[in-house]
Design a protein around this nucleic acid. Structure first.
Lengths: 258, 258
DNA sequence: TAGATCTGTGTATTACTTACACTAAATAGT
DNA sequence: ACTATTTAGTGTAAGTAATACACAGATCTA
């Protein structure tokens, strides 16, 4: 059956993610492993960004040839999927955390931002489909655990979590990008006027009056370099409103039922 | 100065986006235009996805050679940026819409989802930095116009809008992906059991109890093929909660001030 | 009309993924 | 121990992509 080059039924991405790949007992022992390959790739991405990750580069990092990696991973795309689930890591436990379900959600959001800080390239990769890897799912799992005492229904919990997840991701990305651009422009973030704010002030105020007004108000220079965890702060507002809204919704439902 | 191949100071992405490119008065008139190139590329992406967009493919579509495109666009990356801002189009006007600011936000969200339905590849491209193109900014502008009567402060409006925008994008992407996967699997969406739901039921319930419980509850089969605009419905929940929360926040602030 | 300058093209280079075939190693069964 | 079988890692080459560079012809300005 395996007379051709095919590695005896190439493991699918899901099998690799869940470690459902039974090692064949025949043949030479592999010197590498999927995990080593993934770790090396993550190392490259952390140091030089996702664009620097090529099969050649990863192989070189490990001291192997490009082709040998394809014994562990069936394509670069698959490698990146594995990198993403590995780098995101397991979600923190939120069950029984002091402060109730709202505190749990906050912990999740903050830890998520922290992960994105550690691996900025995670935000430069578009996910495909709903979460499927063990780690990605652990975040959903913890999100549901947190929400489980909120009074929401099953479907509502899922919707709420995905809503939150999307918002945090996108906000973290934008704020991270802006921060990085600032750091690149004027190395002293002070002297270089906030880049985006300046850009917005150059925009035709007649076509974008609301934007101009808000920019003039300084809404885009808010980011104070003294406030280290600025990203978290900016995201916090939306989270608080969302959680307030959820709380009110549950209360209203309860009231209506009685 | 322009003795080399350089097109006399290649226009930056921003200049192209804002049409700030003064046509030189010397030399032959260009037969193509940036807009034609972008439109052709969007056509390819709409029909066959973003991966099908290559410089060669777009050139072929226009009946030109690959290299001629580089006279209008300085890189493929730039082309994609232009595609994105063009395809997203101008946001609908929300000022003075019946139903107040909440209605305005809903209109924006719904129209955004509609755009993503028309150009699914928009959700497969990672944005870089905050919105900068005229169309992308028009969405922010309209968002701010909507929020302007909500009672939020400048910075809060921006944060709220970006939060919402991120959530809508990510939710639309996930739901779109799932929908597409279902369509691909069983062409009659009915007979093929909801794919993701089935996948989740195969997951170790001891490590993911909350997830298992929710899946067993049928939270992932909710999507009813009869309900056409299912995506919109699933997103609506989060939006409503967020807007409720914002309303409550403003009310509380007002109360505290007096 | 002369000169400058721009458009579109052709060629070549580089980088990357991947198909395929080969070797060398390790095990299983005899 | 011996042999067949299976698998790990390598080498080569193909195919696709982006893009650097230079040239030919077109067209405007003076």
């Amino acid at each position: 059956m395996a007379r051709d080059g095919t590695p005896t039924g190439a493991p699918t991405t899901l099998e690799l993610l869940w470690g459902t790949a039974e090692r064949p007992s025949r043949g030479p022992k592999p010197r590498l492993s999927v995990d080593k390959v993934v770790q090396a790739a993550i190392g490259v991405a952390d140091a030089e960004g996702l664009d620097a990750v090529s099969m050649q580069r990863v192989a070189q990092e490990l001291g192997y040839t490009t082709m040998s990696l394809y014994r562990y991973v069936s394509s670069k795309e698959q490698l990146v999927e594995l990198m993403v689930d590995t780098a995101i890591g397991s979600a923190p436990e939120v069950e029984g955390v002091p402060g109730g379900w709202r505190a749990g959600i906050h912990i999740l959001a903050r830890e998520m931002v922290a992960v994105f800080r550690r691996h900025p390239w995670l935000l430069r990769h578009k996910l495909e489909g709903p979460p499927q890897g063990p780690c990605s799912l652990s975040w959903l799992e913890q999100g549901l655990r947190a929400f489980s005492t909120s009074g929401l229904g099953s479907a509502e919990m899922v919707q709420a979590f995905m809503f939150l997840d999307g918002a945090v991701r996108e906000l973290a990305r934008v704020l991270g990008d802006v921060e990085q651009a600032q750091r690149r422009a004027g190395l002293t973030a002070d002297q270089a006027e906030r880049d985006y704010g300046r850009f917005l002030r150059g925009i035709p105020a007649d076509r974008y009056p609301a934007l101009a007004a808000v920019a003039a108000d300084g809404a885009f220079e808010a980011a104070d370099p003294a406030d280290r965890p600025e990203v978290e702060v900016e995201i916090e507002f939306g989270i608080e409103r969302l959680l307030d809204g959820i709380e009110a919704y549950v209360a209203a439902q309860r009231a209506a039922r009685e």
